[in-house]
Amino acid sequence: MSFTNLKMKSIHTHNPVILKVEGLKKYFPLRRGFFQRLAGKVRAVDGVSFEIEQGKTLGLVGESGCGKSTVARLILKLLESDEGKIFYQGQDIQTFSEKKMKPLRKKMQIIFQDPFGSLNPRMTIGQTIEEGLRILGIQNRQQRKARLQKLLEMVGMSAHSADRYPHEFSGGQRQRIGIARALSVEPDLIICDEPISALDVSIQAQIINLLNDLQDKLGLSYLFISHDLNVVGYLSHKVAVMYQGQIMEYAPADRIFENPQHPYTLALLAAIPNIRINQKKDKENKLKVLGGEPPDPLNPSPGCKFQTRCPFAESHCRKNEICLKEISKEHFIRCSRAL
């Protein structure tokens, strides 16, 4: 009961901003042919801005290739951005050298999608997690062991799993280990890059609950990247919907789902197969189908990126670049209909 109230209330209360991203851009050069001539640039991330508050979750949703994982890598400076600013607790980390970045790397961690590829198969679970503790500067072996036990317990793994290797565990357990590793350096912000999409349905709920519990207990902030709107709606306080490298709609989670404004968000919501079915099947349960497929990111046409699939597109959508506009408090959309 108390949990319910906390979570529902916290959508509309405000905490200090832990991460702020402004006008982030990343264009990947594409080379083709024998001489590797520059064939064009893929606009993977094309002016993305958002904020994450302390202890809150921002959900980043979009289809494959929309640039959501690139955003994650840019924030962690695993990739250099072309333009834009990244503020971590008010400091602009964009200009930081690798040396200056190092202490911040403890504060920002990532959980990857594939729990099979993201653990070193030659290291035991204990070694994998202890590596983080060593970086944190815990030199005493006893202390490290004690902390390791506590981390494993926190993610719901038994203590003796520390001496075993990744292949001995199932996908869900490996994802728990990945979470323990991320937690080992005591981060404030965890970027979850599709952490449950490789897991079985019955395991997904376990990991979602774990992430929720850890947020309540440790006050973690999450950037939760997913293509699954149901999961994002359940977990996030705020949601950003991405398409072709741009944020199309950005608002508190309840408003995205109850009052979606951008045609792309509407289409995404309509495309989710719903389990609440009616007896008179066919008519009510028909999915509303969005025609076409995403455009070639190499030669984007001028104007709105969604114009080729948008049922409301008009002539001016094909000419002018459209900006993100605030249509009501904290609710932004990138659509000419908002004017």
Binding site: S202, Q206, N209
Partner: peptide, 24 residues
């Protein structure tokens, strides 16, 4: 029953998700 109860969505927000314990 467990599978259906464990599916997340906006209306279950704030409630703890049911999860089937253990693994396949």
């Amino acid at each position: 029953q467990g599978l259906l109860a464990s599916l997340p969505n906006l209306s279950k927000r704030g409630q703890r998700l049911y999860s089937i314990p253990g693994t396949v």
